[in-house]
Nucleic acid binder design. Structure first.
Length: 257
DNA sequence: ATGTCGACTGCTAGTCGA
């Protein structure tokens, strides 16, 4: 079973790129972020024609997450995170596909740091950790997939010095990510590729893609039920190099189920 | 300090967010 995560940066403008990637990579499950589309404009019919059932949690202009399943309809089990009734941003969606719990998330960027947006990032992260602990306690096979907007270590970025004041590298952001892993989640890319420079995001600015000046911020985390079944993990880098690409590339895992 | 995008509106130019 292949499970992927892809920040599409606008699902309607990106639809041709998304469809060609689905056709080429054929993930069984695809978690999408930054739909930037309200639910009534989600391209469900085009995805259905491509062979994918979809559940989605969109909003106008920003954010938005979706879970696609090849030849199946994901069974939605939750949207949004508990603990803050004032939070109206569409950043978390959860569904079951083939008996696996799929948590699709778009963690707040948090810039500029410091400030209220960074405070929101940490507050959202706290609620994610609380929810993730419940998934761990459930004991069902589970994946947390998405754009975490965290560069876990200095090995996950081309040059940490120039990003030291960015929300993505703050010690508090990294500590929250480490706290999440400590619950019993495995960072799939690092489990199989502990020493390689692997990136998933290259800013549109400053020639960053041609220079391979990237960051690893899109992650697939496997719980203890699933981690022993991990057989492969990678990034579809070529997607980032195409005309009209998202600033993120898809990341994926293969699970022996 | 900054070269890019996508979505949106006071809508063909400027704003916001990333």
């Amino acid at each position: 079973m292949k499970i992927a995560s892809f920040n599409v940066n606008g699902i309607n403008g990106r639809l041709p790129r998304l469809l060609e990637w689905l056709e080429a990579s054929k993930p069984d499950v695809a978690c999408l972020q930054e739909l930037k589309s309200p639910d009534n404009n989600f391209p469900a019919a085009a995805l259905r024609d491509a062979g994918y059932g979809a559940v989605f949690h969109g909003q106008r202009s920003w954010n938005g997450v979706a879970i696609l399943a090849r030849g199946a309809m994901p069974i939605e089990t939750g949207r949004g995170l508990e603990g803050n009734l004032q939070d109206d941003q569409s950043r978390y969606l959860e569904a079951v596909v083939d008996g696996i719990v799929i948590g699709c998330l778009y963690l707040p960027n948090g810039n500029p740091w410091p400030g209220p947006k960074f405070d929101y990032k940490l507050e959202w992260f706290d609620r994610l950790c609380a929810h993730a602990q419940r998934l761990v306690d459930f004991g069902l096979p589970a994946v947390l997939a998405g754009d975490f907007n965290v560069v876990p270590t200095d090995a996950d970025i081309y040059n940490p010095a120039s990003w030291r004041k960015d929300a993505l590298l703050q010690p508090e952001s990294r500590a929250a990510f480490a706290r999440l892993l400590d619950q019993g989640w495995t960072d799939a890319i690092r489990a199989l590729h502990p020493n390689e420079a692997i990136y998933t995001y290259w800013d549109y600015w400053r020639n960053r893609w041609p220079r391979n000046a990237g960051l690893r911020i899109d992650h697939l985390l496997l719980n203890r039920e699933l981690a022993p079944m991990l057989t492969a993990a990678g990034v579809d880098r070529e997607v980032r190099g195409r005309p009209g690409a998202s600033d993120h590339a898809p990341v994926w895992v293969e699970i022996a189920v």
